[in-house]
Write a protein that binds this DNA or RNA. Structure first.
Lengths: 151, 151
DNA sequence: CTTGATCCTCTAGTGGCTAGAGGATGCAGA
DNA sequence: TCTGCATCCTCTAGCCACTAGAGGATCAAG
């Protein structure tokens, strides 16, 4: 195991170290993702190394697109090394499926959008393929039937 | 020109025809995407064919991932067929670039996530690749440096 | 001592809806 | 005619993950 340094830092320093913005750190504290840290006499937050590790974890998970609820579960798991890791895998798998689905939908959109813009000759709106496709969905390739959900 | 039928319908019927939910139609009216329609004596909304066409347009544009601000611009353009369509094309092109960027980022995430889950042997959390990668970003393939933005 | 960076709390806004309260109206069957 | 349910109305609040700004205290450098 590496030596555990015992330094502390302000919220701004923590923000710089992790790439998480200062208001976001306070927000994470408010919603319980980060624990309330110690304070100086003048009420400033002081973060220890555990906080630094935890926030880095959160940041990396957010970078990978996990929502804060999943991150809460992953943090709980990370705190108990003896538990089996099936749950962590399940969370990651679920997220992977979501990501894969999004890619598929976005690719369909990409195809449709490039068809739209490629076919437009650049005349007047009355002859514009972009507007036309939007007006008359039958002229659109794919069937984006039900779920708009998110992108 | 095709014959313009002169039928009308309730908000529920309009919702069924377009696939846009009733509260969403009211919301679109509130924010000015849809104009305030005529009302019956008992204050119920009555939609004509122009409203039906406009809402279908909005729905298709949303399906393609355009945000409501872009849709506002596209609606303005669609209402003036004599204007040149360059602006419509520009909006679509900008959106296409956004979509293409999202696909690229999501593919990187997909690769990282599947690597994470594939390498996990299914033991305890202490040996879990998923948790490990999240803890130590250096073991992660890609560099998701700055922008988390949206997914 | 002054200046400017950083910190504090608090509220409100973003996008694009969705959910629910609390009530009025409309329409079909018994 | 009554009953009951579907649909409609307005209004407010909530969702996610932040972000922005007001209004003020404190700190560190020159």
């Amino acid at each position: 195991m590496a030596s555990t340094s015992l330094s502390t830092r302000s919220i701004g320093r923590l923000a710089a170290l992790t790439g998480v913005k200062v208001p976001t750190i306070r927000f994470y504290e408010q919603i319980g993702i980060m624990p309330a840290p110690e304070r100086t006499a003048s009420d400033r937050r002081v973060y220890d190394d555990a906080a630094l590790r935890r926030l880095s974890f959160v940041r990396h998970a957010r970078d990978l697109g996990f929502d804060l609820d999943s991150i809460r579960s992953l943090l709980d798991l990370a705190d108990e090394p003896e538990r089996p890791c099936g749950e962590a895998n399940a969370i990651a798998d679920r997220h992977l499926a979501v990501v894969t689905g999004k890619i598929a939908r976005l690719k369909a959109l990409q195809a449709e959008l490039s068809r739209m813009t490629a076919e437009c000759a650049g005349g007047r709106v009355s002859a514009c393929k972009v507007i036309e496709v939007l007006h008359d969905h039958d002229r659109c390739g794919a069937d984006h039937g039900g779920t708009r959900s998110d992108f």
